[in-house]
Measured scan of single mutants.
Amino acid sequence: HNLTITQGKLFFHYNPKLCLSEIHKMEEVSGTKGRQERNDIALKTNGDQASCENELLKFSYIRTSFDKILLRWEPYWPPDFRDLLGFMLFYKEAPYQNVTEFDGQDACGSNSWTVVDIDPPLRSNDPKSQNHPGWLMRGLKPWTQYAIFVKTLVTFSDERRTYGAKSDIIYVQTDATNPSVPLDPISVSNSSSQIILKWKPPSDPNGNITHYLVFWERQAEDSELFELDYCLKGLKLPSRTWSPPFESEDSQKHNQSEYEDSAGECCSCPKTDSQILKELEESSFRKTFEDYLHNVVFVPRKTSSGTGAEDPRPSRKRRSLGDVGNVTVAVPTVAAFPNTSSTSVPTSPEEHRPFEKVVNKESLVISGLRHFTGYRIELQACNQDTPEERCSVAAYVSARTMPEAKADDIVGPVTHEIFENNVVHLMWQEPKEPNGLIVLYEVSYRRYGDEELHLCVSRKHFALERGCRLRGLSPGNYSVRIRATSLAGNGSWTEPTYFYVTDYLDVPSNIA
């Protein structure tokens, strides 16, 4: 807008934040220059609390790290170098490059900038070799853009010569660093050979998330399962459950009422301010606690030095998902009996873990797994792929695949051998790939016309006998059925096997 004052003059007093240069501009645009008398524009009460600059400061050096910015700028000295009290560095987070010096300023003089007072450097006698002032900004957020400017702080001049310097606002972004852990990993099994893994992005990506790394490792069953005799009275049979499938998407929606109208769909109840505040506090606490764990609990591995020492970490090797089922080394339970199943799973520490690289999504279907087997899954978020990966501390989750139908069934015939004193040795093959492992066998036998009897055969007993022995049988026709019990439950009964026990007292003698 054009402003013209045809008559009258300007009068400025007691404006401590208004620089004289701005008042002189007002004289020019209003056409009143030359009308004012000496005392109409006070030299001592206008701009006496402001830094009124008329020179431009330029930054000469900028260096960044993930949490620091090192700045240096060209030296500046007023005509009387004693008038320079120091520099004021202003900075704040700036997602967009549209910041002005006066953003967030209120009537009390406060604003949204963080201000650092910096002492002037030592003055050199040689004007050509003056030290460049600077400042190291610490405690910054990774991968965050900051708006920065600097200006001088000078003393009051009796001659009211307006001098000083100020830089333009520059924008500097800190470097990326390792992201925080992925949030809320959930693993479920939808079949006997697959596990579905879902997660949420890290709360602090500290860069642009480029991919996720998912490692999985087959877990050995508890050692007590191999040692305890679950045929003993009072000892509860062990059981394991597989990871249940995901709930429906509708039930997972946030901010939804727990109660549904019987007449149909209901609208979600909005969260109160107290609920939102509580969630923010919980989120802040979780982030602080995660940072504490990362800094205190997890110790970084030592990389190899120039002395030739090897990095103890196993090298990563990509495998196809079809090879995942046989990740671990199978060892027989008892070496003397080769027909026992290889369900003991000690994992070799030198073995390469299978892994998958996930790009542009937060889910993965891990296939080719062994049925009813526990897996430990390790999830890392990465925001750099080359020249070397920059990934987060791992988040861990466990899951067990679903049982395989008929995996616990005894394959092959049940054979028998009759000894003296009416002892019958029953023999059968253990299931080759049971659900988890076989903890015991149930032997059901009966003599024709009598009630059915049951015998429990422990895992250890089966390994020693290759089956079991029935003792003290009365003469007669017998039928026997056997079924295995694994961590997933009972298998199917075998087809009945028949044998006849004679009275050993009636056996004919070869003595003449």
Results as ranks from 00 to 15, higher is better:
S203T: 15
D204N: 04
N208D: 15
N208L: 09
I209L: 04
H211A: 10
F215L: 10
F215E: 03
E217G: 13
Q219D: 09
Q219F: 13
A220G: 14
S223L: 06
S223E: 08
E224S: 12
L225W: 11
F226W: 03
F226I: 13
E227K: 07
D229T: 14
L232S: 12
K233E: 12
L235S: 08
L235F: 08
K236N: 13
K236F: 07
K236S: 13
P238Y: 09
S239D: 11
R240N: 13
W242F: 02
W242M: 05
S243R: 07
F246K: 08
E247Y: 13
S248P: 13
E249K: 14
Q252H: 07
N255G: 13
N255F: 04
N255W: 14
Q256V: 08
Q256D: 11
Q256H: 12
Q256R: 05
S257V: 10
S257L: 09
Y259N: 11
S262M: 09
S262W: 09
A263M: 10
E265A: 12
C267S: 09
S268L: 09
S268Y: 04
C269S: 08
P270L: 06
D273T: 05
D273V: 07
S274C: 15
S274T: 06
Q275R: 12
I276T: 06
L277I: 13
L280F: 14
L280H: 13
S284F: 04
F285A: 15
R286I: 04
F289H: 14
F289T: 06
E290Y: 03
D291A: 06
Y292P: 09
Y292H: 07
V297D: 08
V297M: 07
F298A: 11
V299W: 02
T303Q: 11
S304P: 14
S305Y: 07
T307P: 09
D311C: 03
P312A: 05
R313V: 12
R313T: 11
R316W: 13
K317V: 04
S320L: 11
S320P: 03
S320M: 06
S320T: 11
L321P: 11
L321N: 09
G322F: 04
D323L: 04
G325Q: 15
V327Q: 06
V329R: 06
A330S: 15
T333G: 15
T333S: 04
V334R: 07
A335K: 10
A336K: 09
F337T: 14
N339Q: 13
N339R: 10
N339D: 12
T340A: 05
S341F: 08
S342L: 14
T343C: 04
T347K: 09
T347V: 06
T347S: 11
E350V: 13
E350W: 11
H352R: 10
P354Q: 09
E356S: 15
K357A: 15
V358F: 14
V359W: 11
V359Q: 14
N360F: 08
K361F: 13
K361Y: 13
K361V: 04
K361E: 08
E362K: 10
E362L: 07
S363I: 04
I366G: 00
G368C: 06
L369M: 13
L369G: 03
R370M: 04
H371P: 10
H371M: 02
H371V: 08
Y375L: 04
Y375T: 02
Y375V: 06
R376D: 15
A381Y: 02
A381P: 00
C382Q: 00
C382R: 00
D385S: 01
D385L: 10
T386W: 10
T386K: 15
T386V: 15
P387N: 03
E389H: 14
E389L: 09
R390M: 14
S392L: 00
V393P: 03
V393L: 06
Y396P: 14
Y396V: 06
V397L: 06
V397A: 11
S398W: 06
R400H: 12
T401R: 00
M402T: 10
M402Q: 14
M402D: 06
E404Y: 14
E404L: 07
K406A: 14
A407Y: 07
A407G: 02
D408F: 01
I410P: 12
H416L: 11
H416W: 10
E417L: 09
I418Y: 15
I418G: 09
F419M: 05
E420S: 03
N421I: 15
N421W: 15
V423H: 00
H425I: 13
H425L: 07
M427P: 02
M427I: 12
Q429Y: 13
Q429C: 12
E430F: 04
P431L: 02
P431S: 03
N435D: 01
G436L: 07
G436A: 14
L437R: 03
I438V: 09
I438H: 02
V439I: 12
Y441L: 00
Y441V: 09
E442N: 03
E442A: 02
E442G: 11
E442Y: 04
V443S: 00
Y445Q: 04
R446H: 13
Y448T: 14
D450Q: 12
E451F: 13
E452G: 10
E452F: 14
L453V: 06
H454P: 09
L455D: 15
V457W: 10
K460C: 14
F462W: 10
L464N: 09
E465D: 11
R466Q: 05
G467E: 02
G467N: 02
C468E: 01
G472M: 08
S474I: 11
G476Q: 00
Y478F: 08
S479H: 06
S479M: 03
V480S: 03
V480R: 01
V480F: 06
R481S: 07
I482Y: 00
S486R: 02
S492V: 13
Y498C: 03
Y500V: 12
Y500P: 06
V501M: 13
T502P: 07
T502L: 11
T502S: 12
Y504D: 04
Y504C: 10
Y504T: 15
P508R: 08
N510R: 07
